[in-house]
Design a protein around this nucleic acid. Structure first.
Lengths: 390, 390
DNA sequence: TATTATTACTCAACTCACTTGAATTATCAA
DNA sequence: TTGATAATTCAAGTGAGTTGAGTAATAATA
């Protein structure tokens, strides 16, 4: 659940915060940049940018990176983001395990760890999360002042809904406010979200969504989730549960099936193993794909059809620059889906002048969501805060 | 097409604009409000709010509205929005007609007019729009300084897409930038959008979406459109074409049909008249509904099923507070749909603790989109600007 | 080679808009 | 009647961005 802050007026202090983020964001997305260039980009005076940059240098978030000649005039001193200037902590909570990661300012993971979880109730989880943080900070020798915040990914949906009672639910989390719980325990800024949203943000910080402002992200976890980014901001939904695309019905062989039942790792597992409950992991699917296993290829055919329907829905509802496929599914499989899906014609995205493909493959990794959790925090430091309306 | 501005830094001047809007927004949504209360609401000092209110009184946008005792302490002087403080101009451009309206600050229409259009090419449209504006201002004796801006509703999709070549297209508009065209001609701020988005905003200013921040709006025009509002802001899509839900396919009698082909005025017309091309207008449908015409009721049964599917998709993708039905369809028909649609169970919106119904009826009127066009401008004066990310 | 145009950058003064703290006023409660 | 409470104003203070003049470094031009 995204925390929805009440609308706030602006004052000098808040302006500075906004502008610091805007400057960081400009430099992050450009790689290196000079002060005058940033000032033009943000419609600020060079003096203002100079002052902010001095502060950011002081804080160790930036460093000088040579000068650029090229044109006439005094060559601009260039600045770049210092990867070691700060770190974001990402946590993914699952019923049987917790995944933790630390990302530097470039979004590069410097620490990742999996912790088996016997007890997934709130207190036990908090204890493990604190342990994970301490272990991570120690492992890479980071002082805790450098920790910018923690992003938490938990299984949605948040609150009691028509989708409750599923296997992924965590015990005894119904009545607690995860955001407050984690913030009180960790004493740093916290953002809580679902896996698809987090993964979508990861693509924006380091992946194939860099430079995109409105896109959709299809996340392959156990099921299937959708992260929606509009004008650089996540669309969280009124209760933080937007993107539950897995439960949308599509026609498969003349029958309405939920997307998740044909386009997810779980569905592949069922197809390949029947009701055998042994987990079919990432690697086994990759191996079967490499061997062109006939059952898997059959599953892929059905999955492609489902993806075509999903594409039609997403494109017509959001008109994104692109739809990115990613998550815990081997990249070969994702590439196959992108290449073999027949794109629907009757959508607003079927236009001739496109700079992005309608479907593309993003990061494929079991840890996509965990890294995405940390990316939520990085995104915050690179993006001026969204003004929430009344 | 929403105009996407580049990200801007903040300074004193922009802070004041933001805060003025925030103050106006607070008062607008509360009806009447005192200064200290607004200050708390926006996390500003009372002095700052006092200064802003003095300015707004000076500009005629607010007026004093008594004092409120009730508690202890000095009773607060209350302020209310002056309906005559400014006006918004709304224009809806159709291939064969232009609709114009003027809304006061409360969102009340003070002038509406339909102008038949023989030539729908850009120059002719501009000419008629200017004439409409002048006529409106004259009719209600408003000086042109009071015109806050113009909202324009035009048939989407914008740009060449897979949905182009439809009957609603306007001739020779492919190569022009409507926003620039209208802004140059009218010399006031302009917002261009599609009918569904505009209608969604109208509900936020005066209708059943007051107080809601994340909701979806199903607009019945000739076809069917979807307006998506997330945290008080429209979700426009990368190219301004989000919300083309009419082209999403749903299963009807075991066959995939586009939503628009079963849930739109045009589809009702086809059902009732066969291929007879004579227009079936708003009133005729209302009459047939009053008479419980059997063919219309049959159409409604199918339409309800389609609406159920649409609801499942919208709820799972956005998790809105509610879905509002409105537009050029008699309210009896909309009410019937709301009451007789079987709501899907497998969605995140199927929760017990709801303050809003999952479906509700909004404004039903041929002019919904026209008034909505003007509401886009009002919304801007009541809502601090969205910070667009890099 | 010298000069000029161009651009980045800094310094210092200025301005805008919000904050702070003290003083004032009106109301309710004891 | 007195005291507590809350809204409001006044005046001074502060943070942050802007402005304009001046300096420095480079490319283009004479």
């Amino acid at each position: 659940m995204m925390t929805i802050s009440s609308p706030k007026g602006s004052n000098a202090e808040r302006s500075r915060i906004t502008n610091r983020r805007a400057v960081m964001g400009s430099i992050h997305s450009a790689g290196i940049m000079g002060r005058a260039e940033i000032a033009r980009n943000l419609s600020l005076s060079t003096q203002a940018v100079s002052n902010i940059i001095a502060e950011l240098l002081e804080d160790g978030l930036l460093f000088e990176n040579g000068t650029r000649a090229g044109g006439r005039g005094l060559p601009a001193v260039q600045y770049a983001v210092n990867p070691d200037g700060g770190y974001a902590f990402g946590i993914e909570v699952r019923p049987s395990a917790i995944f933790g990661s630390l990302l530097d300012m470039h979004g590069k993971p410097v620490f990742t760890e999996r912790l088996a979880l016997k007890d997934a109730r709130p207190n036990a989880v908090i204890e493990h999360v604190i342990a994970l943080r301490d272990k991570g900070l120690k492992a890479v020798s980071i002082s805790d002042e450098k920790l910018l915040g923690a992003g938490i990914v938990m299984p949605g949906p948040f609150g009691r809904t028509g989708l409750a009672g599923q296997e992924s639910d965590l015990p005894e989390w119904d009545s607690v406010d995860p955001h407050k719980l984690f913030e009180d325990a960790l004493e740093i800024p916290v953002m809580v979200s679902n896996d698809a949203n987090a993964a979508a943000m990861a693509e924006r910080i380091t992946g194939v969504a860099q430079g995109l402002s409105s896109y959709a992200y299809l996340y392959f976890g156990t099921g299937l989730g959708l992260g929606i980014v509009s004008q650089g901001h996540l669309v969280p939904g009124a209760f933080g549960n937007a993107g539950e695309i897995g439960h949308v019905a599509v026609p498969i062989d003349g029958q309405m099936r939920s997307l998740e039942s044909v386009l997810s790792r779980l569905s592949a597992q069922r197809k390949l193993q029947g009701d055998d409950e042994q987990a079919l992991d990432f690697q086994s699917i990759a191996d079967l794909f490499a061997a062109q296993d006939s059952e898997l290829m059959e599953w892929l055919d059905t999955a492609s059809i489902a993806l075509g329907h999903a594409t039609q829905i997403i494109e017509n509802l959001f008109d994104p620059q692109t739809i990115i496929l990613g998550g815990a599914m081997p990249s070969g499989v994702l590439d196959y889906l992108v290449e073999n899906t027949t794109l629907p014609e009757l959508t607003v995205s079927n236009r001739s002048a496109r700079s992005e493909p309608r479907l593309k493959t993003g990061t494929s990794d079991r840890l996509t969501a965990t890294l995405g959790a940390a990316a939520l925090i990085l995104n915050q430091t690179y993006t001026p805060q969204f003004v929430v309306a009344h």
